[in-house]
Design a protein around this nucleic acid. Structure first.
Lengths: 205, 205
DNA sequence: CCCATTCTGGGTCAACTGTCCCAGACGTGT
DNA sequence: ACACGTCTGGGACAGTTGACCCAGAATGGG
């Protein structure tokens, strides 16, 4: 093999993610990971200097993956309230369909916060969320012919606050109906922050 | 000693909580806990059959503690929007003052969700939160001369959703100003669910 | 004061962890 | 075909973990 060096790192990271999704961060031991990847212990330490180094790369990997996963389809013409509601419901459906994935994200944030030297990665993870949602909100507003009356970054933080709270509560009590009620309320409330875009915005009125 | 049996269990649980707050769930090993409690290994296994049994009791302990910790002071006469905003801000101040505590709560939820046989404790934890917040909301509404236009349990879930999302984001990026903006928005939006209580409610109008 | 019960100190055990090592298999360029 | 660098298998290591065991200290009732 020739190009395997970086690729095998990715294979090990993905195997580690499968182990974490199935049994949690604490079960992601070096041996469990290589077993999942079908490799031997020596291969692991040939690709990574240490288990910690692999975890660092893993967190960077999920942050990148998350920031490019725009799991919302913007429908031009729909009003912003409907777009928000549909987007949040799609997110909930996704969590319900694959609870392991969001649980991994939550666990990795905790892991980052707890591991010396990795605290900044938790910040990066949230910055990545906020940026992705802000882009979605900007696109959604344009598609609905509105603009945000407050900075879009603030609106993005609201949305992420809701999705996080929503996810945690659903993971704990699996009450999807209650989650939908939260979504409908949040969509209404957040949509109220959008104002009609009658005129192109100009700097000096 | 005579009554030490139950008391020593509590002492060990509290020592375990201190260890978890300082270094996370994974650091809460039997030896670290007895060191924190100033006991010997034998004492631990005299009080608890196993480390797992202690963790189960620990989670029950924090759920009980949380449900009786009404960390909000209701001010009669204040309007409900102000009460909500002040209550949420007080919660944020508390998180900022003692980040370890809420981080422990988050970690314990993840631990419950991951540990076979403890999944129901995560549900209990959230049921406990929702019940406590619902009581607070009922009291707050009464103190402000309003009533909730939707079931108070739904309002409670909204509040818990916000506090969870708020806490996670702040733990990650420590942006208190952004958290306050979220709070102010949430207080406005949720207060809109309250309607004036002009008449005593009667079953048949 | 003595004795039975309750507790503890220290040692021990097997299991598991991350890490390392080395002989040898593999593929590649010549 | 050959030699060389790249990789892997299996084994080993020290450290840590949860659990246990037993002799003996502490304690309180008689």
């Amino acid at each position: 093999m020739r190009i395997a060096s970086a690729e095998r790192r990715t294979l090990l990271v993905q195997a580690a993610l499968r182990v974490i999704a199935a049994h949690g961060v604490s079960a992601a031991t070096t041996r469990a990971i290589v077993a999942e990847a079908g490799m031997s212990l020596a291969s692991f330490h040939y690709a990574f200097r240490s288990h910690d180094e692999m975890m660092r790369e893993l967190i960077g990997y999920v942050v990148d993956a998350e920031s490019t996963a725009a799991f919302a389809v913007l429908q031009p013409g729909a009003d912003i309230r409907t777009s928000l509601r549909d987007g949040l419901r799609a997110f909930l459906d996704y969590v319900i369909a694959d609870p392991g994935h969001e649980q991994v994200m939550q666990e990795l944030v905790q892991y980052s916060l707890r591991t010396p030297g990795l605290e900044s990665m938790a910040r990066d993870q949230y910055a990545s969320y906020h940026r992705a949602v802000a882009e979605l909100l900007t696109g959604g507003a344009a598609a609905s012919g509105v603009r945000w009356a407050v900075p879009v970054d603030d609106v993005a933080r609201l949305v992420v606050t809701v999705t996080d709270g929503l996810t945690l509560a659903w993971l704990a009590d699996r009450d999807a109906a209650a989650a939908v009620r939260v979504i409908d309320f949040a969509a209404d409330a957040i949509a109220a922050l959008a104002v009609p875009l009658t005129q192109p915005i100009r700097s000096v009125p």
